[in-house]
Amino acid sequence: MHSHAFDRYHHKHSFVHNLDPRVKVAATVAFILSNALLPDGAWVAFLAAYVFMLAANVGSGLGLGFTFRRSFIALPFALAAVTVLFSIAGAPVASFQLLRWNIVVTDAGLARFMSIVIRSWLSVQMAILLVATTEFPKIVHALRQLRVPAILTVIISFLYRYLFVLADEAMRLMRARASRSAITSSGKGGGSAPWRARVAGNMAGQLFLRSYERSDRVYNAMLSRGYTGELRIMQARQFRANDWLMICILLLCLAFIQIVGRML
């Protein structure tokens, strides 16, 4: 498997790329929080947030529409929110007959639904931009410096490192299965669904044992290089005045969006 299938980082030298990862992580979370704080139907504020987003896109040198292309990943989940369309009291906007129910879409319901979808859509784009402009190990370091417990960040580091190795092994197992199972013209593989599930289960078991044995070897490699149970990492770069300034500017922008959301 090509390991790049999992990569989300786009190498570039841009303003956003060069920001301290801690600033970017904090700003992303603040942006998502700001969206959550906006009241339903604050359209102008949503627009302002979108402009903020676009500015970040431009500042990353990845292009105005960069995050847009991948931003629909969360949209299927909007299905979960469909019911608010007709469950909130308000003036009817549209009504239709579904089987024996008469369903009435209200203006308040529509506003709420749109607000949920927009919040989600804006938030996911900023998260996309974060991983596109920051190498994942740097995000993990930033989390460590932002006080996420060391054991979690270490597990995440290992997960990231071995994700590629183990996904490759999983892929080989699936390929081996595919090369041994003929597919009939009906498009269905051989055997019953439970049987196929058992094969998948056996593959998972095999993958587990290989991973378990690998963790032994990795542990030996760590011991050989002086690991005694305590993991040490290099100190982070000093947080400079520029970084603070950047955080302040970003927060002011978000404050502006919040004010707009409440006044207009």
Binding site: P137, F158, Y162, A221, Y227, I233
Partner: peptide, 28 residues
């Protein structure tokens, strides 16, 4: 004693090259 294991995926357990090469000296 610098022991290098057969499978480099076992030997290189850090996400980046720098972190991996720094692991030994840091833990010294």
């Amino acid at each position: 004693v610098g022991l290098v294991f057969q499978n480099p995926d076992d030997q290189l357990f850090s996400p980046t090259v720098f972190e991996d090469v720094a692991f030994g000296p840091l833990h010294m």
